[in-house]
Simulated assay, not measured.
Amino acid sequence: MTVEQGNRKAGTMSRRRLLGVGCGLAAGALLPWRGAFAYSDAKTLGFKHLHTGEELSAVFWSQGRYNEDGLAELKHIMRDWRTEQTIEIDRMLYQLLFDIRKKIGTDQPFQIISAYRSPKTNLQLRQNSDGVAKKSLHMQGMAIDVRLPGYSTKGLQQLALKMHRGGVGYYGRSDFVHLDTGRPRSWVG
């Protein structure tokens, strides 16, 4: 073999190798499972607001970080519907709700009874009810009152208590559970 033939053969091997690697990468990018794998960490929450009738399913976490568009949608549905005011909602509250749905094994949307409350709304509710805290965590975007269709509120309360990740209030007569990201504590209202 001449030097020229050896150089040509070496060049052909390099080009073949390069072409093979390129084809492998291109084929891998087109495989459906690769796309699904890249998004397997997506976290979605679903809600139905019982006072406004609004329904929402939003991705709040994907590709290793918070999804700002999804957070904005969640912030809107969790607004004080009486005053239309919004506040940043504690992201750990979203995580808690997501983890509850995951443990239960459901994709049912939470029914919102109450989420963010402006100080004005909280004061009005305190004047008309015994069960509203003066310094409610609802006013800080750290609390929500919910039901979960197909799952008992008592069961929801028990699961949240076992998770030990914040306050859990059980309101059996009104059929909802209060969940917050404050210090762990519990009560029956």
Rank of each mutant, 00 (worst) to 15 (best):
P184W: 12
Q157V: 02
F47V: 03
L161F: 09
W187E: 12
K120P: 00
A160N: 01
G131H: 10
G182A: 07
T83H: 08
N122H: 09
Y171N: 13
T83M: 10
L161P: 01
G28N: 08
L125E: 10
L125W: 02
D180E: 09
R117Y: 05
G189F: 01
L19D: 12
Q124C: 02
E88W: 09
N7I: 15
G150H: 07
Q111E: 15
I77N: 05
L18E: 12
T44F: 04
S62D: 13
Y171E: 13
Y151N: 06
R101E: 05
D99K: 05
L18A: 14
F110C: 04
S14P: 00
G6R: 15
Q63C: 02
V132G: 04
Q5P: 01
G141C: 07
S62F: 02
G22Q: 05
T121S: 15
G53D: 00
E68W: 02
T52F: 09
R165G: 02
A10Y: 07
K75I: 06
D80H: 04
N122P: 06
M1N: 11
L56T: 02
G150Q: 06
I77T: 07
L18K: 14
G172T: 08
E55D: 11
Q108R: 11
W81H: 12
R183K: 15
L45H: 00
G155E: 08
K102I: 01
T106F: 09
A38S: 03
L179W: 06
M92G: 14
T106D: 05
L148A: 04
R17K: 12
L74Q: 05
C23H: 00
N122A: 07
R79S: 10
R82V: 11
G6V: 09
I112T: 07
L45P: 02
A38T: 04
G105Y: 08
V146C: 05
Q140T: 07
R65V: 00
L71N: 06
R82C: 00
T12C: 00
G131L: 00
Y94F: 15
L96V: 04
W81P: 01
K48P: 00
G24K: 03
A26Q: 08
V168G: 02
G35Y: 11
V3A: 15
R65F: 03
G131E: 02
Q95V: 13
L179K: 03
V146N: 01
G11K: 13
S62M: 08
L71Y: 04
Y116V: 03
D130K: 14
G141L: 08
G46N: 06
V59Q: 10
V21F: 13
Y39A: 14
R16F: 02
K75M: 10
